[in-house]
Each structure stands twice: as structure tokens, then as C-alpha cells.
Amino acid sequence: MHPFNYVAAKSVDEVTKVLAKHGDRARCLAGGTDLLVQLRAGVYELDAVVDIKTLPAANVLTLNGSLRMGSAVPCHRIYEDKAIAKAFPGIVDGASIVGGIQIQSRAGMGGNLCNSSPSADTVPGLIVHNAECVIAGPKGKRSVAAADFVTGVRRNVLKNGEFLLEVKLPKPDKGFGAAYERFTPRNEMDIAIAGVASSITLGANGKVKDAKIALAAVAPTPVQAKKAEEFLIGKEPTAANIAKASELAREAAKPISDMRGTVEQRKHLVGVLTRRTLTKALERAKEAK
């Protein structure tokens, strides 16, 4: 591993200064469960690593209708909070299956976003919850939708000197339900061959007022199945409509074949998982009415 210096960040300014000084030879350390593996494999060669777990602003986790989640908050803090689990089921499903218990002690959604892997388990959930990413940089803060944060494999919207400070999730509407499921050959400790997060908001008339479907591991970035979403909106949430939406979601998947799965398998799984997550989201939406 290339030798690097370690900075335990105390302020947002300190982080942005170190990042700006070193450019692409510095990165933030949150859980480190991807970063340290990548440094050993030579994916990155860094001169500085900035630990944001020591930064209070990156550790906030406050539920007040909406949710503020610092970028260094590890998965276990999210899923162990019963109120969050109830209000934001779509992100809790993902947070509960990242790695094993040891990984969940460290890894969080901020790191999952910034690692920008197509198979990230928590990003689709953030998308269907309409999450906003708060980015801090030398010129102050800016906001980007979680859906737009990842721009390619290991690429995202962060510019030189910038880092992800927190993720904000708006208060879900009445009648909102969401769910994330992935398919892996093992029951834990595995990488998604495909993953789908879905959300449904039921209107007062019982019809679908809003729907979101985000797919993992089937394109270079998480993708939204917009045609499937549009199809559902305004319709009765029947099994037939969910099946049709699942077919449309399948078409939004543009996967590759690799050691983890084939194109056909992944597209097929997107169909299955969309149906399953929409069904689960609907159940949760009914509970939330």
C-alpha cells in the first residue's frame, strides 16, 4: 500500500482544505470497508486519508419527520433505531444487508454513495425515498438528488475539495411505503446480482399517487425505471398492474454478464424483484395510511 498520512477531521473546513490540497490523492474515510480494500489492491494511491468519523457534522442522525443522516453514520445506527426503521423502510432494508454485522458497524450510506459501485445496496433505497445529498466544498454547501449523485462506476458528482456531508430524506407522505430487495446466491455476505428498491404512495382514492423504482447492479450506475413508475401512477395497485410495471422495469435494466450473473439472469431478476418490492411497498403503504 502506498504510505499515506491520516487526518482525524475536526471541522468541515479542515476536510475540504485537505481534499483540495491533495486533489485525487486524498479521500475521505468513513467506514473504510471499501476504501481500505481498494487501497490494498492499488485502485487508489493516496497521500492523505481524512477520517470523517471524528467530524460531528458527519455523525448527525436526527429524525424529525424528515431524516438527517451524516455521511459517517454506520448502518447499524440506522437499522437499530426503531423509529427510523418504521418511517424509512426502504433505506433500512438496504442498511440491514450490507456485509455482515462487522461491516455494518462501520459501513454506512455515505460511503456506499461515495464508493459509487453499481451494486451498492443502499443507494436505490435513498433514490426511492427522494433523498438529497448535501455536499460540502471550498465554496460552501450544495445539494444534489441521490438519484443524480452517482455518475459512473466509481464516479460521482463530487468535485475537487468536495465531500458528502449528509443525506437528507424528506418526511414520507401519508400512504407511503417502500422496500428494497436484492438477489444474492448466499443469504448474507454477498454482492447483489440485481437489486430493486420500490416505493408507492397511495392517494386518498386508493390509487397510486406516486411510485419510484430504482435498480442496482444492472447498469454502471443505479438507474430508475421511469417507464414503470409512470405506468403505475394513477392506477389501481393491482397484482396485474404491478406485474406490468415489473415487465417495464426489466426493460430499464442494461446489465452486463460477469462472474456474478448473466444479462438474462439479471434482467429476469429485476422483473421478479420489482414485483416483490412493489408488493411489499404496497403493504407498507397500506399500513402507513
Binding site: Y6, A8, L29, G31, G32, T33, L36, V37, R40, V49, D51, K53, H76, G99, G100, I101, Q102, I103, S105, R106, M189
Partner: peptide
């Protein structure tokens, strides 16, 4: 050495972690 076997599990404060995925300087 990449967090997939748990043989290096230790407890840091009240959480178990894979010690291969933690830096020594982090346990200050």
C-alpha cells in the same frame, strides 16, 4: 484481509469489527 471471513474480528467500544478494515490510528 478484505472483510469477508471475520477471522480478525475484534470489539472496538461496543461494536464488533473486522480489524483488517480498521486503521490502527483509528482506535485512539
Amino acid at each position: 484481509n478484505d472483510g469477508n471471513c471475520g477471522a480478525c474480528t475484534v470489539q472496538v467500544d461496543d461494536r464488533i469489527v473486522d480489524s483488517c478494515l480498521v486503521l490502527g490510528v483509528e482506535v485512539e
